[in-house]
Design a binder for these strands. Structure first.
Lengths: 258, 258
DNA sequence: CGCCGTGTTGACTATTCTCAACCCAGGTGG
DNA sequence: CCACCTGGGTTGAGAATAGTCAACACGGCG
């Protein structure tokens, strides 16, 4: 439950990523072809890099916007507390994801974001986003598209917590993360790094950590997954997807420029 | 559970709403001041009106985009079925809401939308949205902002189904709808029209209809609400909000242009 | 008049939570 | 080098929350 307080160990450094390997450009390119000018604008806007420790907050509920955070490396999550301490994790953020593009439009965070492992974040100043919307309609549509993808995933999480059983729900999360991580080359065969305690999984799935434990055992017993040392291996992807009632359409994995 | 099939009783008609009373212009104006040119563009883009019956589908999962639907009058919902028939309602759409702005960016519906009462919808052709992003950056930001508001609400629904009990969850939904409807002048004192069966409430809240029934009784017994003939009356708003652990910040009710 | 959709109730069941204990591995300090 | 501490993970027992099934009530409508 404890997320740790925000330490100010964030270290600024220069980002020397070329356009071709820039994770945001890679992501947007699946939606549309960016012009050289647009790519340059993105690279120029994201030169300021900050490192965060595991469990360090990247942005807090109630904060005014300081900039838009682009996750370059690591693993982070959005989450929200109820007054009495219950916590719900709302999303996982992977390299290439914009953590809080909404804040430039919404001005105060209504939830928090924290790194789950040591992470690197590029801070994009709000003025840059404003400039994008004024000068680069194509880039604007691509950024908008990323927020709509986020929403599609959030909607599926509503289905997950609202309709699926603990077993289906857990399987579904593992399927979703597998597909998202594979897309950005962060899987190793059928395995990927899942740096979550069972308590954090519980806060994600709306389950107690005890029940998460028992659900994981059942998934293992049925030969669908292995999970040891924060490495999740999917032993039977088709079976796991069937158990999860998983349908990948909501991830919009293929390009869909129109 | 049955949503009814799409009847083709949709009737086209001309929309003769002036800019000042256009529900979308009213909504966007809480974010930013629109220019006369932008207002005209919106009015011109939304002249084609279609009527839908109660329980008629406005858009179906898998559909290719035909246009963006702007709800002018009525009450609609997004929802998604699992293969085995379980249904989750994902959002309620009120007058002024854009039903599926995401589709012009995402090209196929990953969920469905249906009217819950007889409703009027303006169909905005995708070409218009494209034009907005090319020619009207200010308007584009305003439209983007509406999709981010939708996402903030969806995130809160994840918290709702993930963390709140049936009682808290039901109370929370009633608070949310009250604030959203009041903003668009659709409340009558502490009452508003809630055209949902207990089964539909169950599909919204991730509860069985029987449990919804018992939860409603408890809310009545505690003097928080009355609900008869699809009219919900909040007898004690502060009490209901307390019971729901409701915090209105996620609705971003005040203007927040930046 | 009778049917159908919706709401209500009771009895029973299933899922999930809570609490408490215990285990194990890794890190720390003596 | 070892004792201890701490943060996960695991297990059992019992309780609470929510689901299922089946019956019945009620009102609108053909």
């Amino acid at each position: 439950m404890a997320m740790g307080k925000t330490l100010s160990q964030a270290v600024e450094a220069d980002l020397t990523v070329g356009a071709s390997t820039h994770p945001l450009i890679r992501k947007l390119s699946t939606y549309t072809k960016l012009s050289a000018e647009e790519e340059t604008a993105i690279v120029d806007a994201s030169t300021k890099m900050v490192s965060f420790d595991a469990n360090e907050e990247i942005a807090s509920r109630g904060d005014k916007v300081r900039g838009v955070n682009l996750l370059l490396e690591g693993f982070a999550c959005r989450y929200k507390y109820l007054e009495d301490g219950r916590r719900q994790i709302l999303a996982f953020l992977l390299p290439g994801d914009l953590c809080d593009l909404h804040v430039f439009l919404i001005n105060r965070m209504d939830h928090s974001i924290a790194a789950l492992v040591p992470s690197k974040v590029a801070m994009i100043a709000p003025a840059n986003i404003l400039r994008f919307t004024n000068d680069f309609p194509n880039l604007t549509r691509a950024l908008w598209w990323t927020t709509l993808l986020d929403e599609a995933i959030t909607r599926e999480w509503v289905v997950n917590t609202g309709q699926r059983t603990a077993y289906e729900r857990t399987a579904h999360l593992f399927c979703e993360l597998f597909h998202r991580l594979r897309l950005i080359g962060r899987t190793d065969g059928n395995s990927y790094r899942l740096p979550l305690t069972q308590a954090a999984l519980g806060d994600t799935l709306g389950l107690s950590s005890v029940h998460v434990n028992r659900t994981l055992q059942e998934l293992r017993r049925n030969g669908l997954i292995s999970l040891r040392n924060s490495i999740l291996t999917i032993n039977n992807l088709a079976g796991l997807e069937r158990a999860a009632l998983f349908s990948r359409d909501y991830l919009h994995l293929a390009s869909s420029a129109g």
